[in-house]
């Protein structure tokens, strides 16, 4: 149990996928203009991450058993892309409002490196099924925390007086790096809490 809590804290805070591992920067910068869409996108990412981990875990055991571990990347990309397509079809049928709200960002999860990253890192860390799922869930929640927090920052940037040469993406990148720096301050809390 302690280990699961540690995994969660690590995924959300100390090893945040966006702010410490710099995975999933594209949606982090692209979809964080409004808090609502940032939240919806993160929810979809959490769902896809869990689904992808559940689907790739047995595939990975098969690959390892047949000494085909070098195929991980290509097979995982294939499976994740197919899963996202299926999620899209089902969402379109049963929850059209959510489908419309997510729009282009749903297919973009296909190429979201945070999803592939979490799957690959789970495998590399040698987690069992339960721990893999916990780690993915934590990664997704961490993604959500980063997105929602940063969308708040960006909403304030919109109405602030930014020097002309920094307007738009430059100031966004600076704000992102400062947010990321602030998360460095959490380093060591998992060890400090005696969770590992």
């Amino acid at each position: 149990m302690k280990y699961y809590i540690a995994l969660f804290v690590m995924g959300v805070i100390t090893n945040n996928y966006v702010l410490s591992k710099f995975l999933g920067i594209c949606p982090f910068l692209g979809v964080s203009k409004k808090t609502n869409t940032a939240f919806g996108m993160s929810a979809a990412v959490i769902f896809v991450m869990l689904l992808a981990t559940a689907a790739t875990y047995p595939i990975n055991s098969f690959l390892v058993a047949h000494k085909l571990a070098y195929l991980q990347t290509i097979v995982f990309i294939l499976v994740i892309a197919a899963l996202v397509q299926m999620v899209e079809i089902i969402l379109k049928r049963y929850i059209p409002p959510l489908y419309q709200a997510l729009g282009i960002y749903l297919p973009l999860i296909t190429t979201n490196c945070a999803v592939l990253g979490v799957v690959i890192l789970n495998v590399d860390s040698g987690y069992n099924f339960g721990r893999s799922m916990m780690s993915s869930f934590a990664a997704g929640v961490g993604f959500m925390v980063a997105m929602v927090m940063f969308s708040g920052v960006r909403e304030r940037l919109e109405s602030s007086d930014v020097p002309k040469f920094l307007e738009g993406l430059p100031i966004t990148l600076i704000a992102a790096s400062i947010t990321s720096l602030s998360f460095l301050g959490f380093g060591g809390i998992v060890e400090g809490m005696g969770l590992i």
Binding site: H66, L68, V75, L78, A82, Q85, I89, Y94
Partner: peptide, 26 residues
Amino acid sequence: IAVIFVGAVGLVCGAAIVVLSKFFAV
């Protein structure tokens, strides 16, 4: 083995998408 495996995964995924899009089409 590698070729057959990746091909099979691709086929299964493709077939699943086709089936889903047929049955859940709007």
